[in-house]
């Protein structure tokens, strides 16, 4: 539980865009789908890596076809 709270905290701290940042134009969402997607996003927030940048940087493949 502590882990989960920490992740949510980190997400807010890192990722709420600054007021002066240029936001991406919001993608057009199919009507009526928003509520469904938002419910899924809430669930995903609980499991997403807290430090996305570090996680992505550390994901390196050696070998393989």
């Amino acid at each position: 539980m502590a882990d989960r709270e920490q992740q949510q905290h980190v997400r807010r701290e890192d990722d709420v865009p600054d007021d002066d940042a240029t936001p991406t134009p919001p993608p057009a969402a199919p009507q009526g789908q928003d509520a469904d997607v938002d419910a899924l996003l809430d669930d995903i927030d609980d499991v997403l890596e807290a430090n996305a940048e570090q996680f992505v940087r550390g994901f390196v493949q050696k070998g393989g076809q």
Binding site: P17, P26, Q33, D38
Partner: peptide, 26 residues
């Protein structure tokens, strides 16, 4: 894409934001 677009819309993320790349991996 449905999930990634949802994140972009809700949190105002550009395609180069690490959270989208992390979501793709995870």
């Amino acid at each position: 894409l449905r999930i990634l677009d949802g994140l972009r819309r809700r949190d105002g993320l550009d395609w180069d934001h690490p959270r989208l790349a992390a979501t793709d991996l995870q």
